[in-house]
């Protein structure tokens, strides 16, 4: 397994409050790594450290090092190059309002300064295909993105992230606002995307972790308790806390 992201002795928090404690973690390349843990344990905070979105919250701070392909991303002054390489999908689908499906996917490239319309059109199509949305929307690219169904909107958001050609995708409970059918479509999509992208997925759904992920980390009260192959963690967890979390969730 090849390392994509590495965290070394990372502490993070908001103002007085420390949320993450001494996180050491290696995220493997082109695999799906799932982060599990109880509510409030710091999953979202951890995820947002990886594309420097953490610092967008007033009072947020971080100590320690986060490497992406060996480069310490917090040594850069400007966070935007990191964010271009690390796409993010949110809990609720959030297509840009007042923009067509096409514009939603194209806007990233356009705002990077890409002028070549033909190139953009090509990228939009590829992204929509990769997000398994092309067949459904190819005849109505001019429709507003917000007019799609919830599941389609989430796939549109995935396409929007893919269009700017990142190599990492961060997903924060991407299916928690969706119905079961849309959820399984997204899960399939995650599997297929993992051939090309490094994916970090936050979920507190153990079954979902089992279905889509290769590796799993368990976080509790801001500390990584366990990290291993998903199959291993789900079948024979080493830590008691992990075991309790898994068995409780697995039951329902």
């Amino acid at each position: 397994m090849k390392e994509k992201i590495r965290l070394e002795h990372v502490d993070a928090g908001f103002g007085e409050k420390q949320v993450l404690y001494d996180i050491n973690l290696i995220i493997p390349e082109r695999k799906v790594t799932v982060i599990m843990g109880p509510s409030g344990s710091g999953k979202t905070t951890l995820l947002r450290l990886l594309n420097r979105m953490h610092e967008e919250v007033r009072g947020a701070w971080i100590r320690g090092k986060v490497f992406l392909d060996g480069l310490d991303i917090y040594s850069l002054r400007d966070p935007t190059p990191v964010r271009r390489r690390v796409g993010m999908i949110f809990q609720r689908p959030n297509p840009f309002p007042k923009m067509s499906i096409y514009e939603n996917v194209a806007i990233g490239l356009k705002l990077y300064g890409v002028k070549d319309e033909e190139f953009i059109r090509q990228k939009v199509r590829e992204a929509l295909e990769a997000a398994a949305l092309w067949e459904e929307v190819k005849d109505e690219l001019d429709k507003p993105g917000t007019a799609l169904s919830g599941g389609q909107q989430q796939r549109l958001c995935i396409a929007r992230a893919l269009a700017v050609e990142p190599d990492v995708l961060l997903m924060d409970e991407p299916t928690s606002a969706l119905d079961p059918i849309s959820t399984s479509k997204i899960e399939l999509l995650i599997r297929s995307l993992s051939k090309k992208y490094t994916i970090v997925l936050v979920t507190h759904n153990v079954q979902q972790a089992a279905r889509v992920s290769d590796y799993a980390g368990f976080i509790h009260k801001g500390r990584i308790i366990e990290f291993s192959l998903t199959a291993e963690m789900l079948t024979k967890p080493k830590n008691e806390l992990t075991e309790r979390f898994i068995s409780r969730r697995a039951l329902g």
């Binding site: 990191v82 964010r83 390489r85 796409g87 993010m88 959030n94 840009f96 007042k98 705002l111 990077y112």
Partner: peptide, 21 residues
């Protein structure tokens, strides 16, 4: 957040995405 997470600088995100919304 979605705009910033795409790696768009804040001022461009404001002008082209937030203001548009």
């Amino acid at each position: 957040e979605a705009a910033l997470a795409l790696g768009i600088p804040r001022w461009k995100a404001i002008i082209w995405i937030v203001v548009r919304a």
